[in-house]
Design a protein around this nucleic acid. Structure first.
Length: 644
RNA sequence: GCCGAAGUAGCUCAGCUGGUAGAGCAGCUGAUUUGUAAUCAGCUGGUCGGGGGUUCGAGUCCCUUCUUCGGCUCCA
């Protein structure tokens, strides 16, 4: 007998070799019908795998992430089975579950596959699914496995096998398809009731562009047809929030082939939004003791040789600009830090001066590969809300904490609650990748971890994600399609002060080296605004909204009064406009509603007589009449709430 | 850069197997002077992304190029 401990702490004895599925059946038939896998001693197992020792057991259904992942992984195998049936001779690399479904990388060996083929593959998958074929786990010795794939002439699986040890090799078989796989899988294919292939894409074998390109087929599967419908609907909704679509509709920004790809052009409304963000940040920074500086867009090659960026990124950068006669090389600046180092150096610094906090909204240019460009989130020219803090080593942690405060203040004002904080540390396996002493790195990493903990941030630690010059803390946010992007970043740097030989005079009258902290709460303004657009679906916080109100005269007779109202509100420092088109009020309301203008002020006979405005709130409708001063007070109160 | 898909009016899209470009919205002009999500009528607007080719004839077929979109370690 074995002792099974359930999540609620209950312990029950079962016969040795009982499976999770049988245990589920002993509890209830309906539970058993939903069990996809089981967590046995924290490890996800097939629900049909016999348990031969005491264990904690957590039954996994569609409700648990691991349950879903298991189903998706099994669906990947199902897709492989369908593909193999439809395209004989194709070979498989890997087919894991991902956040939204699964994919399988295949070598089509001459077959071609386009989205037009999806329907046939999906139909085949469902056909196979209905056979309720069990996923059978088969343990093999390494020799058996190697023999199997040698006979199949499968270089991909043989490559995978190379890295596996004897005794840990398992195959999974369902229907006609057998795959090298560590599992786990769902009990049988019948759990898969709905499938949808999402797209095909090329993917280099092992992600290395020198290798052959395989075909990656993405799909998703569900246990209910209804869930698939809901998922597709959710995708449609997400598309509506896409910043590229809203940016066009709300006239925020555009791109021009003549100007060049990846170089955004800000239209007046987008520029207004940008200005507001900049102003907001400048105020916050002034309060936090930053001083603004300004630097040019290009710099001599020597600057980047000194900073080390030339060596590191020289080949990936734009080509240098040469002076016509002397042939001296200048580069568009890819970052602001080297310039700021020179500003630090321009004056003698005492320990009493530190921290020195130099801030600049610096526009930088970076070469991004053609295929990497994406709306405003990945561009070739963008503006950072950059600042560099030059601090004494004993100030690192305190300053780091202050920066976190600033980032959190910004995120809160913009209602970005759904972020993750990622601490990026060195990859212990590649020490050669990094510049700087071990001692400094250890110090910096410890400071970041301590600061994040002190500020109560929920963090994820990623080894190997650090920059070559120092560890960092990044704030990541998802876009409408679920992709993760880095927004704010705080990075400790012991390298640049060394390279630029930065110094300050200590209380001991000796020269000391400061530590640098790079930080950008927005990161790139372009990317930040993109994510902001998607998060609020184009409905910006009132204080940011390019147009806060629209005045809608009932007819041309009341235009004059509309202008009076506009003039009054302008002196109150509010932004708006008059819709004095020769249209009916319903049309005007509709149009401004579509344009997501936060407030509409309807003015006609009655309002004019009483010196009032009829206020409509976007998405809410009529909220009653008030005087102009009442309205302006109302708006200001709402703005104050946002910013505090 | 590489794999795949797409590019038709300012925007959203239609245009079957090649026969000489069309709708709605926007814009312009006029009528209307309007009370809380689309007033009516008329008009303008496109070398169908660019270049080349096949053909009597190309938005449609072929080649090439540019741009956009989805991917390109989320490693059994």
């Amino acid at each position: 007998m074995i002792q099974i401990t359930f999540p609620d702490g209950r312990v029950q004895a079962y016969e040795n070799g009982t499976t999770a599925l049988q245990i589920a059946q002993s509890i209830s038939e309906s539970l058993a019908r939903n069990v996809l896998a089981a967590e046995v001693n924290q490890e996800v197992w097939d629900a049909t795998r016999p348990i031969s020792h005491d264990a904690t057991l957590h039954l996994l259904t569609w409700e648990q992430l691991q349950g879903k992942s298991t189903l998706w992984h099994s669906a990947a195998h199902l897709m492989a089975e369908a593909l193999e049936a439809l395209y004989p001779g194709i070979q498989f690399w890997v087919g894991p579950p991902v956040e939204q479904g699964f994919y399988y990388d295949v070598d089509l060996n001459g077959h071609t596959l386009t989205p037009d083929n999806f329907a046939a593959i999906e139909a085949k998958m469902l056909d196979l699914a209905r056979q309720n074929n069990p996923y059978q786990r088969i343990e093999k010795s390494k020799t058996e496995a190697v023999d199997y794939f040698t006979e199949k002439n499968d270089p991909y699986k043989l490559d995978l096998l190379q890295r596996l040890n004897d005794g840990e090799i398992t195959f999974y078989k369902q229907g006609q398809f057998t795959d090298l796989c560590k599992g786990p899988h769902i009990p049988h294919t019948g759990f898969i009731k709905a499938v949808k292939l999402m797209n095909v894409a090329g993917a280099y074998w092992k992600g290395d562009e020198n290798n052959k390109m395989l075909t990656r087929i993405y799909g998703i599967a569900f246990t209910k047809e209804k869930d698939l419908k809901a998922y597709l609907h959710m995708l449609e909704e997400a598309k509506k929030r896409d910043h590229r679509k809203l940016g066009k509709e709300l006239e925020l920004f555009t791109f021009s082939e003549k100007v060049g790809m990846g170089l955004p052009l800000w239209l007046p409304k987008g520029a207004m939004l940008r200005e507001r963000l900049i102003q907001f940040m400048q105020r916050a920074q002034l309060k936090a003791g930053y001083v603004p500086v300004a630097t040019p867009h290009i710099a001599h090659k020597d600057l980047y040789v000194c900073s080390g960026h030339y060596e590191k990124y020289g080949s990936d950068a734009f080509k240098p600009i040469l002076t016509p006669h002397e042939g001296e090389a200048f580069y568009l600046k890819p970052m602001n830090c080297p310039h700021h180092c020179e500003i630090y150096k321009a004056l003698p610094r005492s320990y009493k001066d530190l921290p020195v906090r130099l801030a600049e909204f610096g526009t930088v240019y970076r070469y991004e590969q053609h295929g990497e460009l994406h709306g405003l989130t990945r561009v070739r020219g963008f503006t950072q809300d950059d600042a560099h803090l030059f601090v004494r080593p004993d100030q690192v942690k305190e300053e780091f904490c202050k920066v976190i405060d600033l980032v959190l203040y910004v995120f809160k004002a913009l209602k970005l609650n759904d972020y993750t904080a990622q601490i990026s540390l060195r990859d212990p396996e590649q020490p050669g990748k990094y510049i700087g002493s071990d001692e400094n790195w250890n110090l910096a990493e410890a400071s970041i971890i301590a600061s994040a903990a002190e500020k109560g941030l929920k963090t994820v630690v990623e080894l190997g994600e650090a920059a070559f010059y120092g560890p960092k803390l990044d704030f990541m946010v998802r876009d409408a399609i679920g992709r993760k992007w880095q927004l704010g970043t705080i990075q400790v740097d012991y390298n640049l002060p060394e390279r630029f030989e930065l110094e300050y005079t200590g209380s001991d009258n000796q020269k000391h080296r400061p530590v640098m902290i790079h930080r950008a709460p927005f990161g790139s303004l372009e990317r930040f605004i993109a994510l902001l657009i998607e998060h609020c679906g184009g409905q910006f916080p009132l204080w940011l909204s390019p147009e806060q109100y629209a005045i809608l005269p009932i007819s041309e007779k009341y235009n004059a009064y509309a202008y009076e109202v506009a003039a009054a509100l302008e002196t109150e420092d509010l932004r708006g406009f008059i819709d004095d088109r020769n249209e009916k009020i319903g049309k005007k309301i509709r149009d401004q509603e579509v344009r997501k203008v936060p407030f509409m002020l309807v003015v006609g006979e009655k309002e004019h007589a009483q010196q009032q405005v009829s206020v409509r709130e976007h998405g809410r409708g009529d909220i009653g009449t008030m005087s102009i001063t009442e309205f302006s007070a109302h708006i200001k109160k709402l703005i104050a709430q946002d910013l505090n």
